[in-house]
Design a protein around this nucleic acid. Structure first.
Lengths: 238, 238
DNA sequence: CGAGCACTTGATCGCTTTCAATAGCTGTGG
DNA sequence: CCACAGCTATTGAAAGCGATCAAGTGCTCG
C-alpha cells in the first residue's frame, strides 16, 4: 500500500511528514495482519517492531498472577503501538477484531526519530494525548460507581466513533461496542456480571437501547452524559 | 540560581542540554516558591508557564462536582509541570510541602522545543515514563484490594526515595511518606479510614513499622512486595 | 493547658463480587 | 431441519469488602 492511500495518513505518527520523510518510513515499513483474538505481543516479549494500527481494534492489558486483568488502553486505527527506547513490552497487546498494523523496524525507526522533527513532535503529541486519556481513566477507576463507569465508557466510545471529540453532541446517537462484556469489565475494573447488570439498568431507565448485543442507541446523549458523574460542561480535557 | 548548581540539573527536562541550550532556558526561567497547602494551579486556569519541580512535593488531582477527588500524579523534584501546546490546565496542581518551581515562559518554551532536540527528546522520554506510571496505577486502582493498594503505594514511594528503581532492594528499608493519609486515600481511590485501617493491619502483621506518622520501616522489603500482589520478579516495566 | 488537626478504631450499611442457574446466539453434523 | 455443543450474556441469591457514620486518641502549636 502507498502511504498516499493510507486511511490513517493524516492522523497517525506520520501525519506531519513531508514526502522525503515518508520515503524513509516507506523503506522500513511492512504491513502485518492479525486475526481476531490473536495476541500481537505478550508482556515481556522482545519488541522488534513499532507501528500504527491501520484498521481494527486491539487492546493493551496487564494480568496479575492470579488472573485478575486490567485493560490499560484501547487501540483504534491511527494509534501507535510500542515505545521507542524500550526493549520489552510491559503489556499484552491483543487483537480484538481482525487488525492490520503498519510496522516499522524498531532500530531504524528510533534513528528516524532523532533526525525527523515531524515524527518526534507528532509522537510527543500522541503520547501526551494518551497520558491524558490514562489520567481520565484513573478518575473513572478510582472514584466512579459501576453505573457511572459504564456510562463513561459508552460516552467515550460514542465520541470516538462519531469523531466528535470537539463540540457538543446532542440528540440521539447510535454506535457499536468494539468489545465484549468481559473486555468492558476488564477495562472498567468490574466483573462481567456487574457490567451486564448496569447495562440492563441503563436500558430499563431508558438511557440506552440495545439492538443485538453490540449496537447501542442513546436516544438523548445528554442524558447519558448525566449518568457519567462528570461536570455538565464536558469534563474532557480541552 | 545558576543551572550548574541546580539539584535537578541531570534529571529534569533540561538534563541533556548543551551550554548553548541552557543559556536559552536561562533567559526565560524564573524561580517561584509555593507554601505547603497552596494551590499552584486550579483546573481550568490558563497556563502561562511550564516548569520543573526543583524541591518539595506537589500533587495533580481531579475533583468531581460532588467532591470526590482522585489524585492523578505525584510530582517530585525533577518532574515536569504543564503541557506544551495546551492553553488550560485540566487538573489541580497543589503544593503538598513547600515547593520551588523553575518556571519557563510558556510561549518561549514551546518555541525552544521546536528548535532544541535535546529538550524535546527528553520531554518525550519523561512523558512516556509518566504514561507508564499512569498505566501501572490503572492496574492498582482497577484490580487491587485495599491492602494491596497500600502495599503498592509504600513500595513505589520506597523505590522512588531510595532511587533504586533498577536492581533488587533487599532487607530493611526506611523511608518517609510525603503525604497525609487523606492524600493517600485520594491517590488510591479509598477513604482515609480504610487507609488507616490497612496501615494498622500491615503494622500488626509485622510488614511495616511506624515511627511517628510519616516515617515507615519495612524490616523485610521482599515481604512488603509480596503484599502488593505483583509478580515476584518485579512487575515494574523494565 | 487547651484548641485544632491528623489519625485511629468501632459498628453498621450497601454496593459490588461471588457463586449459581438460565437464556440466547452461532455453528456443526446427523 | 433440528439437535446439540460452546460461547456470550442475563438474572438471582448470598457473601464480603470497603464506605459511612461516629467516637475516641494523640500530636503540635499557641
Amino acid at each position: 500500500m502507498e502511504c498516499g492511500d493510507c486511511p490513517i495518513r493524516y492522523r497517525a505518527v506520520c501525519s506531519r511528514c513531508e514526502d522525503s520523510e515518508l520515503d524513509m518510513l516507506n523503506r522500513i515499513k511492512t504491513y502485518e495482519t492479525y486475526a481476531a483474538g490473536e495476541t500481537i505481543l505478550w508482556a515481556g516479549d522482545r519488541m522488534r517492531f513499532l507501528g500504527s494500527i491501520v484498521s481494527g481494534v486491539a487492546t493493551l492489558s496487564q494480568t496479575m498472577e492470579d488472573g485478575r486483568r486490567q485493560m490499560i488502553g484501547l487501540l483504534l486505527p491511527s494509534d501507535f503501538v510500542g515505545r521507542p527506547g524500550r526493549a520489552n513490552s510491559p503489556y499484552d497487546v491483543t487483537a480484538v477484531s481482525d487488525v492490520m498494523v503498519c510496522r516499522f523496524a524498531k532500530t531504524e525507526f528510533e534513528a528516524l526519530i532523532e533526525t525527523s522533527p515531524a515524527i518526534s513532535r507528532r509522537l510527543l503529541e500522541m503520547t501526551m494525548d494518551e497520558l491524558d486519556a490514562a489520567r481520565e481513566w484513573l478518575l473513572i477507576l478510582g472514584r466512579k460507581t459501576a453505573r457511572e463507569k459504564i456510562a463513561s465508557f459508552l460516552a467515550i466510545i460514542a465520541r470516538r466513533q462519531l469523531s466528535l471529540t470537539h463540540g457538543g453532541v446532542a440528540g440521539a446517537v447510535t454506535f457499536d461496542l468494539p468489545i465484549t462484556r468481559e473486555a468492558m469489565a476488564d477495562y472498567l475494573g468490574l466483573t462481567l456480571e456487574t457490567v451486564s447488570r448496569q447495562m440492563s439498568a441503563l436500558k430499563k431507565d431508558g438511557i440506552i437501547a440495545l439492538e443485538g448485543l453490540r449496537r447501542v442507541t442513546a436516544p438523548d446523549f445528554a442524558a447519558l452524559l448525566d449518568e457519567t458523574g462528570d461536570d455538565a460542561d464536558g469534563g474532557m480535557p480541552a
